[in-house]
Nucleic acid binder design. Structure first.
Lengths: 151, 151
DNA sequence: GTAATTGCAAATCATTTGCTTCGTA
DNA sequence: TACGAAGCAAATGATTTGCAATTAC
């Protein structure tokens, strides 16, 4: 599953976890590998149920791990209008925005630079808030669902 | 609580509900009045627990009503990184974006025109998605929390 | 009168927490 | 060996659902 690129990233991520005081455990490696190989955010439940994790480590462990990884800045947590929390690897200087199909739930990463990034400084000034961060998601009907609806 | 302006809006909203086939019930009026008078999105739980509703109608009724009102386009549902769903009245041609304090949870409406609105057409073209809509939220530390943290 | 709503209780879903045992550093 | 993690079970919080009793139109 993991190509050499994600293996390298995995090592780097684990180093960052270790630097933050976390221990190198099987669950940690599995969760990070899974998310590195996923091209979209996954819910905590999906992660815990994934073949690579299911049966090997307890759901509670996965949930605890995800929380800790987010606190350490390794993961980003998203809302996506779902009851469940979504997680994805947090990348260095950028972050991705997503478009979600309201019919089938498919999630696609948007191939564009985030149009809001540039506004953060201004928002911070106007609002007085610090340590700004943001979340932007688009929702709509994907081409496949639009096609099947009109059949 | 309701000034004449929100009374007028209430009538208009109820008319839209009626037009959509909903019946004019006590719960409907109470929920709409509450949200019209609120200057920020509220969680379903907050709405059900509000003095105007608590004891007068069942939480299950409130939850069902909120879902139906969203389906009818009367309310907008937001995620806000919370486990709970937030609801707010959906206004005609614009929508608001919010900034949320990650320490105390306070929510403020942003006084600016949404910078993403203009991009929807382009996103729609690039992605092939239709009926686009979006959600944009900023998160950070509000001035009050920043002050109390440095004390 | 009748179909849409409500109330109440029970069920579900997505976590979260307590506590004992295990395993990495 | 010691303290951070994992396992397992029970507890929570936020809805959701089934169904009989109401009520708006």
């Amino acid at each position: 599953m993991s190509d050499s690129c994600s293996k390298k990233s995995l090592t780097q991520l684990i180093d960052r976890c270790r630097a933050g005081g976390m221990r190198r455990t099987q669950a940690l490696e599995s969760v990070l590998t899974l998310l590195l190989d996923s091209d979209r955010p996954m819910t905590a439940g999906e992660i815990a149920e994934a073949p690579a994790l299911k049966g090997h480590c307890d759901p509670a462990t996965v949930y605890r791990l995800l929380v800790r990884l987010e606190e350490h800045g390794i993961l980003r947590r998203l809302g996506l209008r779902d009851r469940a929390a979504y997680y994805t690897i947090r990348h260095a200087h950028t972050h991705d925005d997503y478009i979600v199909c309201t019919k089938c739930g498919s999630i696609e990463e948007l191939e564009m630079e985030c149009p809001v990034e540039a506004l953060e400084a201004e928002i911070a000034r106007k609002s007085g808030f610090t340590q700004l961060d943001h979340e932007l998601e688009f929702f709509g009907v994907c081409p496949e669902c639009a096609a099947s609806a009109s059949e």
